[in-house]
Design a protein around this nucleic acid. Structure first.
Lengths: 112, 112
DNA sequence: ACCGATACCTAGACCTGACAGGGATAGAGC
DNA sequence: GCTCTATCCCTGTCAGGTCTAGGTATCGGT
């Protein structure tokens, strides 16, 4: 009963995308597949969340894109992370870790 | 430089409130103080977020409230968790743990 | 000929939390 | 007596982010 995808923690989509792109270039669909695979199907990125997010992030200068051919010969928009994106990634990753640490701490101490 | 309150992870407010009330009855202001204290000032619950959340949760039947006197003789609305609230808490806590585990996993594997 | 997977995108609804206020009382310090 | 901080409650409005639900198109396999 536990193969239902866990809901994506709101606010972590940008982080997951940046982290993925820090490891290589992907097209949108590929990013979603990659995250799904690494999380063992636990996280599913909806396309209706993904593409608006990619668009936002491009406007902010964190990522850049260009059309290229996939290995199968189809056109797809490939994204890569920028220097500003890497900086942002560092920031968000640190914030995320602090936030979950603090939250987990509250949950734990409330048990006592 | 790290005493700036970390942003609250979206979606965790209900969870934090339920967990707090599972440990005892509190009034709204007290809930905020409690979470702030347990998190060592890392999490701050804004009143403009807290009271609407309490209202929502009461409508959903997860918590109940009544006016009582504080130890200092002032009137305050005290909240307690209901049976449905405990059930909800179990669900949300499990979801939360699964989500962060999956997210952390993606972050870690992307480093390799 | 069809269907599932690949690939892109938008519109609208929805929920949540933050900001910015407003109000009132108690206690401590001057 | 006065002021300031802390305690306590609440609402309106807004921005932000995600999901649902659609639409478009190509490709490979049956």
């Amino acid at each position: 009963m536990s193969d239902t995808p866990a809901p994506l923690l709101a606010g972590t989509l940008d982080l997951l995308i940046l982290k993925t792109l820090a490891a290589g270039t992907f097209h949108g669909y590929g990013i979603a597949q990659h995250i799904k695979r690494l999380s063992r199907e636990a996280l599913r990125i909806e396309e209706g969340s993904l593409y608006p997010a990619l668009s936002r992030m491009q406007v902010k200068g964190w990522i850049a894109s260009e059309w290229k051919q996939t290995p199968t010969g189809r056109e797809a928009r490939y994204y890569r992370i920028t220097a500003a994106g890497r900086k942002q990634l560092g920031q968000e990753e640190a914030d995320f870790k602090r936030s979950i640490a603090a939250t987990v701490r509250v949950l734990k101490l409330s048990d006592a």
